Simulated scan of single mutants.
Amino acid sequence: MKSKILATLIISLGLGFGAGTAYAESVTIGTPITDTECDAIGEDVNPSLSKGVHAAFKCDNAKNLITVGACHENGRKKVEKIPCAIIGEWGGEVKWNGTCANADDTVDTTVDIGKGYIGSNAGGSVAGAALDAACSDDSVDDLTPDVS
């Protein structure tokens, strides 16, 4: 079941995974991620990213939790309102794709640097999210939801 959730997130975000414990890690093409690094994946994963895609993950083995983020260097770059969506629930809190109070809210991108996508294996949706800087390994690490 965990492998199916992981595969769904990979397909939905167009990325492979990396692993770690409670910190973001950039995904590196050609470097296998083992289930000993992140128990929640259940089996080894070989990342595959399209050209220009940056991806990251956070993993907390104690919570059996993975969060992921991805963006594309040439992705959508316009000021827009991103619909709020729940990306999961952990730590006793519902987690949103931005500073949202309910699904009727929006996340406003204030500059034309683009957006990425985030998700988790804790229920919810894969959802758009505003980037704080142009798509890169660093900005996607910042975009990826904390597992705390």
Rank of each mutant, 00 (worst) to 15 (best):
G124K: 12
I87H: 01
S26P: 00
G124Y: 07
A129K: 08
G98F: 06
R76I: 15
T110H: 10
N97L: 07
P32C: 09
L15S: 03
I113Q: 07
K95G: 01
N74K: 15
G98C: 08
S148T: 13
A122I: 07
Y23K: 07
C59Q: 13
A70F: 05
L9Y: 01
P47D: 10
S139M: 06
L131P: 12
P145S: 11
G69C: 05
G124S: 14
D108Q: 15
S12H: 00
G52R: 15
T28N: 08
G30H: 13
T36K: 14
K77D: 00
H72V: 13
G98L: 02
C71G: 04
G18K: 07
E89A: 13
E93A: 14
C59E: 11
D39C: 09
S148V: 06
V27P: 00
T21Y: 14
A40M: 12
P145W: 02
A103Q: 13
A130P: 06
D105C: 05
G114W: 03
D108R: 12
K77R: 09
H54M: 06
A40Y: 04
K81E: 11
G124T: 09
D35R: 07
A122L: 02
K78D: 09
A122P: 00
V27E: 08
I118G: 03
D132F: 04
L131M: 09
L9E: 02
N61R: 07
G91I: 14
E37R: 07
P145T: 07
K58D: 03
V53I: 15
G88H: 08
P47E: 14
W96K: 06
C38L: 12
A24D: 05
L143N: 07
W96C: 08
T34P: 02
I82A: 12
D105G: 06
N121M: 06
N97A: 11
N46L: 10
D112V: 09
A55Y: 08
H72S: 14
A62Q: 15
T34G: 10
I86Q: 13
A127H: 02
S26F: 05
D137A: 15
I118C: 00
D138S: 10
R76Q: 11
A22Q: 07
N121L: 05
C135D: 02
N61F: 09
C38F: 02
N102A: 10
H54I: 09
T21C: 08
H72R: 15
K58R: 15
V68A: 15
K78G: 11
C100D: 04
A127K: 09
V68N: 00
D35A: 15
E25W: 03
D44N: 11
G98S: 04
V53L: 14
I10R: 00
V27C: 05
T21V: 12
M1K: 09
N61Q: 06
T109F: 02
L6Y: 00
